[in-house]
Every structure is written in C-alpha cells, then in structure tokens.
Amino acid sequence: MLDKVAFSGVRFAYGDQPILQNFDLRVAKGEFISLIGPSGIGKSTLFQLIAGLLQPEQGSITLNGARSENRLGMVGYMPQRDALLPWRTVVENAALPLEIKGVAKKEAQDRVRSELPRYGLHEWADAYPAELSGGMRQRVSFLRALLSDTDIMLLDEPFSSLDGITRMELQEWLMEMWQETGSTMLMITHDIDEAILLADRVIVLNGKPIEKPVELAVNVERPRTTAHRNRAEFLALREQIWELLRQNASKSPAGREA
C-alpha cells in the first residue's frame, strides 16, 4: 500500500542538539496516528519536517510516495494555538489557503460558506475570532487546514487549550470528520486518553534524540465514542503507554526533577 507520509533514516538536529536519529515512520492512506511523548522532545519539529518548514539533515521524507524538497503547501496544518488572523472574519480565515493557492476571493469564500453548516458555524460566518469561543475557533482552524486541498492533516495539540467538556465534544466531532473526509491524520497530544480514542496507532516518542519510537496498534472497534474509554482493551493500552512514558521520565534528568 502507498504510504501517505514516510520518514526513512531521518536525522535532524538544532545546532548540536539532536532531535531525530535514524528515524522511520510510515503512515498509510486514511490512517489516524497519535503522537505522544514528553514536552520538549521535538514533536512539533516532526510536524515542521513533514510540512516542509524544516529539511532533514539525512534520510528522506516522502509525501504521497514522492520524495520532494519543497513540501510547503502539501499538507493541512492545524497549529497548537488556533493562529486565526484576528483581522479576518471566520469566512476570510478559512478561505486563506484557497486564496493562497490562487482561487478568486469570491469563489473561495463561497466554498467556505457552503462548508460552514457542517461545522455549526454558519451563524458566525462574519464574526471575528475574538468573538468566538475556544471550541469554535478550533473548528475554524480545522476547516482552514482541511481547505488546504490536501488529504494529509497535521494536528498539533488541537484541543489542549479547551476545557474538558468542549474537548470531549470536539474529539467526537473530529472522529466524524475523519471518517467523512477519509483524510490521513497525524495528531500530537499530551493526553493519553485522547491519543488512544482517536487513533489507529499510537506512537510513543522518547529519547534524545528520538530513535526508536514505540508503535502501539489500537484494537478498539470503530465507530468509537467517548464511552469506549472504559473498555478493558482501552484501559490496558492506557496503562501500557503510561508505563512507557514513566520509564522514560525516570531515565531523563528532566523527568527526575519533575
């Protein structure tokens, strides 16, 4: 099967601080992958490499099976903070990637307007980001990433700034969107439950540099709801991931301090 995203033997360092070493990762079309690991380990760097903001020092990164130096504009990126432009309305924000691709403003905005009802945002089409709640802002940010016209989505801690109730709502909503669009999704998260609930595979990142990530398949049937959190297989997996993270924390000096 064709890999949507593949790292092979990737090495990357910030100056003399190694982040990735001989790193491999393969993501199949339509897969949902969760990436979990301690703070500051370089998860966002991984996304910046995929998106083409950074280039590997060694090894290769392929998107859609083709190796390409210029990966900018090939993935939809949903940054950690929503990063909505405050001077643009909901419609104008979501239409941004289309505008950048050269679609006429009117046409781009019409397309966004036709999408808004699915996101429960049709009444907020002409509102500015400051008028929206955190959950609504994340949905606009997601729509914007989706409209990059690609089926690879990078979600960098998409729900970390939301309250618990909104977060659960959006997790279920995201599962629906994933099923509907058939996109390949990679999500960074700090929340073990979230990582398991959404993903086909959870990848636990550890070490400095990250070398041998541990991959765990989530064998919980779909469609899932937040209620699946209480299943035995779910709980077992959660224990397993926590164990991996704890081992790593005790190995690194930063973890001992904490």
């Binding site: 910046q48 998106a51 903001l53 900018l72 504009g73 990126y77 940054p79 990063a83 950048i100 990059s148």
Partner: peptide, 8 residues
C-alpha cells in the same frame, strides 16, 4: 509558519 505551510 502556518502561511508558509500553505505554500504562501
């Protein structure tokens, strides 16, 4: 960074 990832 976001705009760059969009290919701006």
């Amino acid at each position: 960074q976001l705009l760059k990832t969009m290919g701006a």
